[in-house]
């Protein structure tokens, strides 16, 4: 659906996107992640034909975005980050206007309008003036606009930005429903959201693609070692020494809080040291309150990929 080859976009000397290549298959839901200024929005703007690339080839549904821009734009529903709408128009009026300029045939206009309003929960809002709507509803109007011409590809730039947790969940559910009918490129900062909605993640940093895989694979290949959390009662120095000398332990952070010692032990990824730690504590006659394996989160992977040198919590 999307094929990007050696895409580069320069603003003066600064390369916002530098030799980026990736593919998105039809029907895929791909999360596009990266820190602010990494080149996400620039890439999306090039895909949607708003900007043109300095170099490289970008194709959407087989059409070149530079030379066949109108064909591409007919097949894309692009929701910019700020969800720009005309505040003076009414919801129905706006959606009808957008459907017409996106060349939805008149005979499909009425049914399509009803359909997207229902999907976005706007049935009761048709007569409302957009400028008077809350942020959450404006977001829905934006999504309804994106869907109104039934595009093959949806490009959504931070669709849940600035929403409250309830609205957030509703929009996420909506995107999940859309996944069955559209190819989606979802740009977001919210990692749990990406993990929940996307089958594949593209991580971009400083204009380069630094990772492209499923969230699970990313976590297991790039997540580093295991992390074990312990809470134990015993003499701090002895516990620390005992933990550090265990095989496969990379490091042990321990601190005393009242009579309990809290600790995080990092080990090699392949081994689970919990039974060994348990045995050790029992043998020494210490008291154990907690012993658990911490899941490496996508956040760790993300931070590892986009931030160097890596700064870890608790350092």
């Amino acid at each position: 659906m999307i094929s990007v080859a050696h895409l580069t976009k320069r603003y003066g000397r600064f390369a916002a996107v530098d030799d980026v290549s990736f593919e998105v298959e039809r029907g895929e839901v791909v999360g596009f992640l990266g820190p602010n200024g990494a080149g996400k929005t620039t890439t999306m703007r090039i895909l949607s034909g708003y900007l043109s690339a300095t170099a490289g080839e970008v194709k959407v549904a087989g059409y070149d975005v530079l030379t066949q821009s109108l064909e591409v734009r007919r097949r894309i529903g692009y929701l910019p980050e700020s969800v720009p709408l005309y505040p003076e128009m009414r919801v129905d009026e706006y959606l009808r206007f957008r459907a017409r300029i996106k060349q939805l045939p008149s005979r499909r206009l009425r049914s399509m309008l009803g359909e997207v309003k229902e999907r976005c929960g706007l049935q009761q809002m048709g007569r409302e003036v957009i400028g008077h709507l809350s942020r959450g509803y404006r977001q829905r109007v934006g999504l309804a606009d994106v869907l109104v011409h039934d595009p093959e590809l949806l490009i959504l730039d931070e669709p849940t930005l600035g929403l409250d947790p309830n609205q957030n969940r509703q929009i996420r559910e909506l995107i999940k429903q859309l996944a069955s009918r559209h190819t989606i490129l979802l740009c977001t900062h919210i990692l749990p959201e990406a993990e929940l909605t996307c089958k594949r993640l593209l991580i971009i940093n400083k204009g380069h693609i630094v990772a492209s895989d499923t969230p699970e694979n990313l976590k297991s290949t790039l997540g580093g070692g295991n992390r074990i959390r312990i809470e134990v009662k015993g003499p701090l120095d002895e516990v620390r020494k005992a933990m550090t000398v265990l095989p496969h332990v990379h490091r042990a952070d321990l601190c005393e809080d009242g009579s309990w010692i809290h600790g995080l032990i990092e080990t090699a990824r392949e081994v689970d040291l919990r039974p060994n730690i348990f045995e050790l504590i029992v043998r020494r006659g210490w008291v154990l309150r907690d012993l658990s394996l911490e899941n490496r989160s996508l956040e760790d992977v993300y931070i590892g990929l986009t931030q160097a040198p890596i700064a870890r919590e608790g350092d």
Binding site: G49, Y50, R74, P84, Y86, R98, K102, D145
Partner: peptide, 10 residues
């Protein structure tokens, strides 16, 4: 910012 949604329409 509506220029962006306007100019990304066909």
């Amino acid at each position: 910012g509506t220029i962006e949604s306007l100019m990304t329409a066909p």
